[in-house]
């Protein structure tokens, strides 16, 4: 029972982080139709900017604020310089350009910070909390809470604010959005900026658990099973998908086999693609061939 609770909490915490990472991914896909393979690199950049800002002696809240500002600028810059010229190109080309982007970002981070794993400065409360007879690390609980808050804020943003509604309009139909006076360019820029911001928070949580190193970028790849399971363009889908994948990995690792747990998300991914390619909550618009 204690193992079960422990695995569940860890799984949910990982799922929450995955959901945050997947959120950025879904945002970009929903608004601009681009599959962003650089999401892992965004997590990496986010984690390292916070790490560097704290290293300069900033208070952690300021460090996060600085990282968010940098993320916004970076996201807009990338959209303008790299993705804008690719509009209308084939999916192969767009996928490859984001892969190239991931390499560049990882290379830059490596030049500045090296490859040695660093410890994330502690500002998330550590320790253990008793839950149904099991001791669970507080930082995991914190990750769940933070992810819930951020995802909730994004949901509000999409339903309540003018910009959020504009983004959904563009996602729905670019031409119609244009005729209503919505600037599609600005929405594209905003999608990338917001994705980068969500990656800062995701990167912060990942780095808090695994340490600040190149490993953080690897987290970006398990995002694919999450978004495919939840539906590529669905925000609630990222939460459910994140939770399912997070729990599945932990249960497999706990009850079956550690090595198997790394590949289980991809097996789920293939099965989902075979049966229901648009995922649990995605819009049914897949092209059949």
């Amino acid at each position: 029972m204690t193992t079960f609770v422990q695995l569940t909490v860890t799984g949910l915490a990982n799922g929450a982080i995955l959901a945050l990472a997947a959120l950025g991914f879904a945002l970009i896909y929903k608004a601009t139709g681009v599959i962003n393979f650089a999401q892992g690199a965004f997590l990496l950049v986010g984690a390292y900017t916070i790490f560097a800002a704290v290293g300069f002696g900033l208070h952690w809240s300021l460090a996060v604020a600085v990282a968010v500002v940098i993320a916004v600028l970076l996201g807009m810059l990338i959209e303008r310089l790299v993705l804008r010229p690719m509009i209308g190109e084939s999916p192969v080309a767009v996928i490859m350009v984001t892969i190239g982007l991931a390499s560049v970002l990882q290379g830059i981070v490596q030049v500045f910070f090296g490859t040695r794993p660093q410890r994330m400065p502690v500002f998330i409360p550590t320790g253990g909390a008793q839950l149904a007879g099991a001791t669970v690390p507080t930082e995991r609980l914190f990750a769940i809470v933070l992810a819930a808050v951020v995802l909730g804020a994004f949901s509000l943003f999409f339903t309540r604010s003018r910009h959020g509604i504009a983004m959904r309009a563009v996602a729905d139909d670019q031409q119609a959005a244009l005729t209503m006076g919505i600037s599609v360019r600005r929405v594209f820029a905003m999608a990338w900026a917001l994705a980068a911001v969500s990656a800062v928070l995701g990167g912060l949580l990942v780095a808090n658990i695994t340490g600040v190193s190149g490993e953080v970028a690897g987290f970006g790849l398990i995002v694919f099973p999450v978004v495919i399971l939840g539906g590529l363009d669905s925000i609630p889908g990222t939460m459910v998908g994140g939770a399912i994948i997070g729990l599945l990995v932990q249960y497999t690792a706990g009850y079956l086999d550690g090595a198997l747990s790394q590949v289980v998300p991809y097996i789920v991914l293939v099965l989902i693609l075979m049966v229901r390619p648009y995922g649990l909550f995605g819009e049914v618009r897949i092209e059949r061939v």
Partner: peptide, 26 residues
């Protein structure tokens, strides 16, 4: 999977095959 999927979905499906094959090898 290519029989049912195109473009980015196929990219993700083949990404999965990469991980599954390497898992089998290891």
């Amino acid at each position: 999977p290519a029989l049912r999927l195109k473009g980015l979905y196929l990219a993700i499906a083949t990404l999965a095959s990469q991980f599954i094959i390497l898992y089998a090898v290891r």
